[in-house]
Design a binder for these strands. Structure first.
Length: 668
DNA sequence: AGCACGCCGACT
DNA sequence: GTCGGCGTGCTC
């Protein structure tokens, strides 16, 4: 009796939706001992001639397919780069988003690096040959965290052993690490979660939105874990480094894996914790198809692998609030209330002449004046540069770029204005409306605010921190730090006062999420203040100001969610935007209109002759809607468009695009 | 994507 | 009769 011939189930590495399923191939005898799940192979596709790359995702002996099987063409390498749990994750994430698994696998598996693979294989065989347990470098698994960190004793460890899903209210403080570096308290909390996971025998995936956050987290981790247990995996690394990191994740020992959004796809087989910092930050939204938010990928993965799941933040996103309200997430709050002293201030005319000079209200000016006697003061502004906008002096029209029609701004006092879109300087500008040649400045950027404050506070050190001038840390000496939102440095010991200046301007942005975003920007800045320091919120009232003043961001999120439910806006429901030819969008709409719990807005015409429709659907029918839309995408990709006489024979543009859970579906 | 299969007009 | 046009559909 011969053993049944093995059959490899292969995911073809192609972006085509019609190839997004498994293909079965006979494993030739010459390759049998090399073929394992996760390896890269090449396979013939559609009779001889065409060779495609793919990943073996499974090896079976029986399949439903009754046709004649082709054979695997070759093994690209024996390194199992697509871990089984990552494949399962990619499949389900793609299904949920009506996308293709190979699009998701792109985030999980970097481009192949032969040198890195060879080094990894060599190290693995060396390890296998070595005497077991003899490694002098065998890392010691850390003991569970003992520091209470402001949370009830034992809760961190309990959440890991109980595989709890939690919204964690971060402590709005900065803390000093043993190294002398100051970081947000949240970073030490995430590090504690990682230590707890490792102590319980599982790896931790820690996802942060940007590199500044990542630096804080890495510093906090370095204080509690040996470096060999920390893996950095982010998009800023070179491809070889990323590839090395992905392979390193597959170690026997549990690891702390740190990175930005795509780290959620890291191949951690034994997963103890997935923790996300600041899930409301738009950087957690993947800008590539199928546009899956890190939060959603984490939710899928948590269910598949059964780890603990933490969403940490100062402000609570409406998405997390919804999950709390339906009982899917518990809440872990600090043992006592840590609230920054927030002082909402109307944008009243300043009485003080110095304050008038800087256009800041008297209250804010007084707070800054007092605080500057003893330490650094943070001033948060909305925009970088000098004047974010220019207007024609005679007719008042906004000044536009002569090349691309983008808005003009200035970067420094007296500087030649330049386009904020294309960057081209506009040396001899004439108004397109009235042919005027002089303009006036509109609004204040970080540089102009710094100039004004410099005059109001003569002799005070001024530091500007924005996208161009990155400043991560400042010391505890008196200084005015003018920072654009999200670029605030961390001050040793915390700021002695925080002024949030451009609230009105930030709120003027047209967005469904504008309130949430502002609350996030302001509370993240407020969390950099030292205990007892004043946080002055200028020119903002209403429930946003009271949410800040009472430090109850979840109350704001809850109220916001009530509105979204009433209006049937996300995240109360899910949405999918369908873009494409009138015919394909109509068909896709028809495929979901029969489902109870789905309704459609549009279609309406958009630029370029396409149309767009928005499907709103309840979470309960998400799988059905995504499946229906996905099959419409395949249909649109495989059936040829009806020929228009006289028009070009065909275009290679896809006739239907589906995007699920767009954050701003109703704008554009 | 590519490439084979298939069903209608000009050719030896 | 059949050679080849490209529209249609499939890929283990």
């Amino acid at each position: 009796m011969t053993a049944p011939a093995p059959i490899a189930r292969v995911m073809v590495d192609s972006p085509l939706p019609q190839l997004d399923r498994l293909f079965d191939y006979a494993v030739p005898a010459s390759l049998v001992d090399q073929v394992t799940p996760g390896i890269r192979v090449t396979v013939p596709l559609r009779s001889a001639g065409r060779i495609a790359e793919g990943f073996v995702v499974d090896i079976v002996t029986e399949i439903a397919y009754t046709g004649t099987l082709s054979e695997l063409e070759s093994v690209v390498s024996t390194v199992p780069v697509l871990a089984p749990e990552v494949w399962a994750l990619a499949r389900q994430v793609a299904d949920r988003a009506a996308g293709t698994a190979s699009d998701v696998v792109r985030f999980a598996v970097p481009k192949r690096q032969v040198r890195v693979e060879k080094a990894w294989l060599a190290a693995r065989y060396a390890q296998q040959d070595a005497v077991p347990d003899a490694g002098p470098h065998a890392p010691t698994i850390p003991a569970p965290p003992t520091e209470p960190l402001g949370y009830p004793a034992g809760r961190i460890m309990a959440s890991l052993t109980g595989q709890e899903r939690l919204a964690v209210d971060a402590v709005p403080r900065v803390v000093e690490l043993p190294s002398g570096e100051w970081v947000g308290h949240w970073a030490t909390m995430m590090a504690a979660g990682a230590v707890a996971a490792l102590a319980a025998g599982g790896s931790a995936i820690l996802a942060v939105p940007d590199y500044r956050d990542q630096d804080q987290l890495l510093a906090a981790l370095a204080a509690v874990l040996p470096p060999e247990l920390i893996v950095r995996l982010d998009a800023r690394q070179s491809n070889p480094d990323r590839y090395r990191a992905v392979l390193a994740c597959r170690a026997e020992v549990p690891l702390a894996i740190v990175g930005n959004r795509s780290v959620v796809y890291a191949p951690a087989a034994n997963l103890g914790l997935i923790a996300l910092w600041d899930d409301g930050d738009p950087l957690h939204t993947e800008p590539l198809a199928p546009y899956v938010h890190t939060r959603d990928a984490a939710l899928v993965r948590q269910r598949q692998q059964g780890s603990a799941l933490w969403f940490l933040g100062h402000a609570r996103s409406t998405e997390v609030e919804r999950l709390v309200e339906i009982g899917f997430l518990g809440v872990l709050a600090p043992e006592r209330t840590y609230s920054p002293k927030v002082v909402p201030t109307a944008a009243q005319a300043p009485q003080d002449r110095f304050a008038a000079l800087a256009r800041i209200p008297s209250t804010a000016w007084r707070e800054a004046r007092t605080a500057l006697d003893s330490g650094p003061v943070l001033v948060q502004v909305a925009r970088p540069g000098y004047a974010p906008r220019l207007a024609c002096d005679s007719c008042g029209e906004s000044a536009r770029c002569g090349h691309c029609d983008g808005p003009l701004g200035t970067r420094a006092a007296g500087a030649v204005p330049s386009c904020t879109w294309c960057g081209k300087p506009a040396a001899d500008w004439t108004c397109g409306n009235c042919a005027g040649t002089t303009f006036r400045l509109v609004g204040q950027g970080s540089v102009r605010t710094a100039d004004d404050l410099g005059r109001a506070f003569p002799g005070i050190r001024i530091i500007i921190a924005d996208g161009e001038r990155q400043v991560q840390h400042v010391d505890d000496r008196p200084a005015l730090i003018i920072a654009t939102r999200g670029a605030e440095p961390i001050a040793a010991g915390g700021y002695h006062a925080v002024l949030l200046l451009d609230g009105e301007r930030m709120l003027a942005r047209e967005s469904l999420r504008v309130g949430e975003d502002c609350l996030r920007w302001w509370s993240n800045a407020a969390a950099l203040a030292r205990p007892g320091a004043s946080v002055v919120l200028v020119g903002v009232g209403g429930n946003l100001a009271s949410a800040m003043a009472t430090w109850r961001p979840e109350a704001y999120a809850a109220a916001e969610l009530v509105d979204r439910r009433r209006l049937r806006f996300p995240p109360a429901i899910r949405v999918a935007t369908l873009t494409g030819t009138a015919e394909s969008v109509e068909k896709a709409v028809a495929s979901v209109t029969g489902l109870a719990g789905a309704d459609v807005l549009g279609p309406v015409g958009v630029d370029g002759g396409s149309v767009r429709a928005i499907v709103r659907f309840d979470y309960a029918i998400g799988a059905a809607v995504a499946a229906a839309l996905r099959s419409e995408v395949i249909r649109a990709a495989t059936t040829r468009r009806a020929r228009v006489p006289g028009a070009p024979v065909r275009t290679s543009l896809p006739t239907l695009k589906v995007r699920c859970d767009d954050t701003e579906p109703f704008l554009e």
